[in-house]
Write a protein that binds this DNA or RNA. Structure first.
Lengths: 316, 316
DNA sequence: ATCCTTATGCTTGTGTTGAGCATAGATACG
DNA sequence: CGTATCTATGCTCAACACAAGCATAAGGAT
């Protein structure tokens, strides 16, 4: 008889599987007028979530159907994020497994009880588009408080480790800011007690940014991190764009996600050179400058290559 | 009252969560003497799996404890792969959610009932280390059979799409072979009926490679794909290495994972230049050539940067 | 007419990467 | 002992990718 389980096996050789609750959590995002937004419920306190139901053919299908019903818009892209087994609920007998998904759509349709909220109202420090080097929330509010946390470490080695971690996460000292470290930054602030959800938090030291119930802000940060990483090697940005758009709008969308300003000329070269888009022939002249050409996404690239992304040319 | 579920809510406002079975599946790999191996059970028919149990503090902890108990070796690295809701079992009332993990260790210890199997006994076409261009299993067995599958498509458009997909997955025509498309290749072969697990399979057309029970070979291919992708941007290879090693051994390990031969001088330059390793001062002269210097992994890089990988310099 | 704005094209310097040549230090064999 | 052979290691060079900036085009506002 096989002996291949993590736990014990019943006498008949069949595996005894504990029954747990299963729920789906969705991080649905869109970009509207240069603002990245996420679908929330309960006045922004929750991400949309709900039980996995038997009639869902697959989990992805369930999420698709549900979001399209709720928002009236097609989900262009769905990807599984992570599965959490909430330890807090494990001991109370009713263990729950949360399976989280990232979904992208290109239009925001409102429904009662749901609201699109700006990403950066939950993570204000992640938006560095308008910060000058050496200014902004990180320098003014976060760096000094993390400095205090570093100083509270036990012993030199512990303080050194804390200093290094803070520097890497927030691009302090001579280090560069890495947009995709969203989750690591959230976890660091959590451990340092600078987040309201943290058990170690003291109200007067908390960093700006709206809290969410349970671990939903943590799940949201996982979603942002994944999306920021993904746009660098897979053309998912286009799921957030309308059918036709200007390169300026495309860049504004990428900048909204990355939280960083990009070098315009290099961004254009990258996009056009990779043949990710083709001109529609029309132009767009609403901006009070030279009218921009309109483009559409060449969906064929999704078949032609498995790797093709919107890399990020650095600053400005 | 909030209205934020995928399904219905009870009268008290609490969410009714369906109870499902939860099981953990492990893809545990090591590299021994240049062969990448995976831990299997039941004569290679299964990956190790078992129920999620209440006493597991977290799922990762459960996997760690379990594998260390089974193999006697420390798991250096554990990462969640994917969560599957097996649709086949959904309708029979006993829905099961499978949460799969990738684990890496640097030593193979045997226990009764478990066996380390070569990756490439399950996916022979993924090992191209010794193939010359234009030869090997892909050219001889897979390309012609996929050609037939392409020809069976309905209409020109469908045949074109099939041709494109086959070319991208297997690097046919002028396209390059992408090591990390392991899952896509498995799925293509499955759909084309060239895999024994497939319902469309005909015994005489099946491609070489051992089958596994259920979807375990699919889960395994997910693990390989993740690992091949990960070594390019994160220094996980070192979890598979002993404490000290030569650059030649390191290269052999990476080649075993990638299934491709690498350019030796460039590989060395990449590793040393990134300061991933430091010399121990000892040398190793078992190979009948100039003795190689021994190195150890600089664990500090894991803290210093979040991004640091073993990129793959191309062929030979 | 002048200035401001946005869009778009082109150039230049730097760093990364693929590929190959050359040398060093050991063993095997006549 | 000399030579062939093997692996390890160091170095060079050309092609390419990328960051950064300059220059020009085409519209609106005053």
């Amino acid at each position: 008889m096989q002996n291949c389980t993590f736990g014990q096996i019943g006498h008949d050789g069949r595996v005894t599987v504990e029954r747990v609750g299963a729920e789906l959590v969705a991080v649905v995002t869109a970009v509207a007028a240069g603002r990245p937004v996420v679908l929330t419920a309960d006045e922004g306190r929750h991400l949309p979530f709900g039980p996995l139901r038997t009639e869902h053919h697959s989990m992805q299908a369930g999420l698709h159907a549900w979001v399209e019903h709720q928002t009236g818009h097609r989900l262009g892209y769905v990807e599984q994020l992570y599965t959490f087994a909430d330890p807090a609920r494990a001991t109370t007998g009713g263990r729950v497994v949360s399976i989280s998904y990232l979904g992208l759509t290109n239009a925001v349709g409102d429904r009662p009880g749901k609201a699109w909220r700006d990403w950066y109202s939950f993570f204000p420090w992640e938006d560095q588009r308008h910060d000058r080097p050496g200014e902004g929330l990180v320098r003014e509010a976060i760096e000094p408080r993390l400095g205090a946390w570093v100083g509270q470490g036990d012993g030199t080695a512990e303080r050194e480790a804390r200093r290094l971690r803070a520097d890497v996460c927030f691009g302090l000292g001579e280090r560069a800011w890495s947009p995709e470290l969203v989750l690591q930054r959230y976890e660091l602030l959590y451990e340092a007690g600078l987040i309201p959800e943290s058990p170690m938090a003291s109200a007067d030291l908390v960093v700006p940014g709206e809290a969410m119930a349970g671990d939903h802000r943590r799940i949201l940060s996982t979603g942002l991190a994944r999306l920021r990483a993904k746009i660098q090697y897979h053309p998912v940005v286009f799921e957030l764009m309308p059918e036709s758009f200007t390169l300026g709008q495309l860049q504004a969308t990428v900048e909204a996600l990355a939280g960083q300003a990009l070098h315009k000329q290099n961004f254009r070269r990258l996009v056009t050179q990779q043949e990710l888009v083709e001109p529609t022939g029309e132009t767009h002249g609403e901006t009070g400058g030279r009218p921009a050409r309109m483009y559409r996404f060449r969906r064929a690239v999704l078949d032609e290559r498995q790797v093709a992304g919107t890399k990020l040319p650095r600053t400005r």
